[in-house]
């Protein structure tokens, strides 16, 4: 290849590039303007909570009079945050574990097999995602209260499973579809039974998918307000619900300690998010989308 010495064809490419840039300019400006405006407002929303939580006093000025961290101590004690965070973690871990146990085998069958009634079953699994949580949350809470399962942690876990299991099924299905079914046939032809196929061949290959959907369910459960709100008792509130209560009763407590609590919640979510984005594509956080190949 040492003989190829022609100059790279620079000129045509620059002219086309320039022409494209000129025609693209006004549209690009508008688009980027809208995006930047959106981000500035988003920044304002998050930063005003953050600044307020560190402010001494903040009335009708650009910035607070002075800065302090005492609101965090107050919020921690006033809202019993240690207990709330413990509950949040316990609920999340339980929901993640159970929804994987229930969802992954179902996703396998739905991804691999066709059988009579499959479409109906798929639709039924889809419905909890398509319905507003309040619509099924109120009857669900009523039923759970009837059986004495609501008002405590089991109710919160059960209610949160309703959207989580379908979500696991939806995120796992493309991962399972990616695996060549002949891989399983090959293992069986080598003498592996069904159980061995699952443990030795499928599970190792599904680890990325399982990890991704576990993290997605975790993020959603920590952030899920409505269902937890409807089923939680006083000592089974998760962080969002406690935050909501403290906000709607904000006359009683200082605005800043509510903000401090909001910052604690935010930082918890952001940590989760950073962890999550190591394993999943941002788009997967909102919907079932197959991974775009990045290389």
């Amino acid at each position: 290849m040492a003989t190829t010495t022609e100059a790279p064809p620079t000129r045509p490419s620059t002219t086309t590039e320039r022409r494209r840039r000129i025609t693209a300019r006004p549209a690009a400006w508008i688009v980027w303007g809208v995006v930047i405006f959106f981000f500035l407002n988003l920044l304002g929303v998050v930063a005003s909570v953050l600044v307020s939580s560190f402010g001494q006093r903040w009335f009708d000025t650009w910035l607070p009079d002075g800065y302090t961290t005492r609101w965090y101590g107050r919020a921690w004690d006033e809202f019993a945050l240690l207990q709330v965070i413990t509950v949040t973690l316990q609920v999340s871990v339980l929901v993640v574990g159970l929804s994987l146990l229930i969802g992954v085998p179902a996703a396998y069958v739905l991804a691999r097999r066709s059988f009579p009634g499959k479409r109906v079953i798929f639709l039924v699994f889809l419905l909890p995602i398509l319905m507003p949580p309040i619509t099924y949350g109120i009857p669900l809470a009523t039923v759970l209260y009837k059986f004495g399962l609501a008002g405590n942690m089991s109710g919160v876990v059960l209610a949160n499973l309703v959207p989580s299991v379908p979500f696991v099924i939806l995120t796992m299905t493309p991962f399972i579809e990616q695996i060549d079914p002949r891989m399983e046939s090959a293992a069986r032809m080598c003498g592996a039974g069904l159980r061995t196929v699952f443990l030795r061949v499928l599970t190792p290959l599904l680890v990325p998918g399982i990890l991704a959907s576990a993290i997605l369910v975790l993020v959603r459960t920590v952030g899920m307000f409505e269902l937890t709100f409807l089923t939680a008792g006083p000592d089974s509130q998760t962080l969002v619900v406690a935050l909501y209560y403290s906000m709607s009763a904000s006359g009683i407590r200082a605005q800043q300690s509510v903000d401090a609590m909001a910052v604690i919640y935010t930082s918890m979510m952001l940590v989760l998010l950073v962890v999550a984005l190591r394993y999943v594509n941002p788009t997967q956080l909102v919907a079932r989308v197959k991974d775009e190949p990045e290389h």
């Binding site: 060549d180 002949r182 891989m183 046939s185 090959a186 293992a187 061949v201 290959l205």
Partner: peptide, 8 residues
């Protein structure tokens, strides 16, 4: 198998 189906 046609696609070899090797365990990746």
């Amino acid at each position: 198998f046609q696609s070899y189906a090797l365990f990746p």
